[in-house]
Simulated scan of single mutants.
Amino acid sequence: MPELPEVEVTRRGLLPHVVGRRIAEVVVRHRGLRWPVEPDLESQLAGRVIARIERRGKYLLLECVRPDGEAPGWLLIHLGMTGTLRVLPQAPPPGTHDHLDLVLAEPEGAGDALPGAATSLVLRFRDPRRFGAVLWSLLDESKLPTHPLLSKLGIEPFDPRFDGAWLYRLGRGRSAAIKTVLLAGDIVVGVGNIYASESLFAAGIRPTTPAGRLSLARCERLAEAVRDTLARAIERGGSTLRDFVGSDGSSGYFQLDCAVYDRAGHPCRVCGTTIRQIVQGQRSTFYCPSCQR
């Protein structure tokens, strides 16, 4: 399932190709995603220019503006469990799971803004399991955080405010296991299953430890481990376990660096103890019983 690193890798891959492009046409082949695609999405987007691409948690946020500056809006895209967003130099015949295309042309007067770029590109959303989403919102930027899908998200892990004190304060009184709390996303977003296991290993914390029992010092180690783990994952192009590829079709390689994730039965790379696997909240958790206390 694409998590924060995979979504950020996708965002960065789209930036040089998509920003500044005009949406010439919208082709929707299947509206039955996690939430139905709006029936008027085609007319809402046609003619708009993609001004920016931001990320909030696992959501890509494309600011789409009209040339006259009126009625800006945001296209919210969630990759779900198996979604990808690819930039294609032309529109090849769609496959069974290619649900939506944005046909992108250069805006008028932008011939020198994208030197060497193709005149027309296709931004294609593919999602075999259809748990992803493509939603349109006319909220302005100041009100976008109030969107129902964004309003309850926790702090971004690279936000300067996210540190050990933040984890310690918001974790007080929580009896749930720290890995479960990390996955919940209301304290900090983007720490998916792979990255929670790896962060807890790096911090030396057993994933079953109640969040409310962590000391400030251990929370400080964990916050640092979360940031470092996610940053390294982004540098490695994310993790490709099944379907994920970046906007250019490249696979991620962070899974090759994992210390514990999906290594049950193998020796710990640090101490040699056999890595164990348990299930927490219907998710597999991997840890070293010696390194993580």
Rank of each mutant, 00 (worst) to 15 (best):
R29Y: 09
N193R: 06
R236D: 13
A176I: 01
G212R: 10
G69T: 05
I278A: 08
R86W: 12
L4D: 03
Y195R: 05
D243H: 14
G57D: 07
L216W: 10
P160T: 07
A51Y: 04
G111S: 14
R124L: 05
L75C: 07
G132Y: 05
D159S: 12
C64V: 09
G173P: 06
V260G: 08
R263V: 02
R206I: 02
R34I: 00
Q277H: 03
G204C: 07
E6T: 07
Q282A: 13
S250K: 15
P2Q: 06
Y59V: 01
L33G: 01
L61C: 05
C64M: 09
S43R: 15
R66Q: 14
R66Y: 07
I187E: 04
A165M: 10
H99Q: 13
L14G: 02
R52H: 12
Q255F: 09
R48D: 03
I155N: 01
T119K: 15
R172V: 00
G73M: 10
R227D: 04
V189W: 11
G116N: 08
T285M: 03
R161M: 05
V134E: 01
V188Q: 01
E6L: 06
I50Q: 02
S199I: 05
V49Y: 06
P210N: 03
I178A: 00
P107M: 14
G95I: 07
T180D: 09
E108K: 12
S197M: 03
V19F: 02
P207T: 07
Y59Q: 01
E8T: 05
Y168K: 11
T146K: 13
H78W: 10
L256G: 05
D257M: 10
E25T: 08
L222V: 03
P39H: 11
A211K: 06
P72W: 14
L135N: 05
R31L: 00
P93N: 09
Q44V: 08
L214Q: 09
G73W: 13
A71L: 08
R213K: 15
L170E: 11
P93Q: 14
S142D: 14
R242W: 10
A24N: 07
D68H: 10
P5N: 10
K58R: 13
Y168M: 00
E156T: 02
A91L: 06
V87K: 06
R21A: 03
R52Q: 14
A196P: 00
S290T: 14
A203M: 11
S120H: 12
R174N: 10
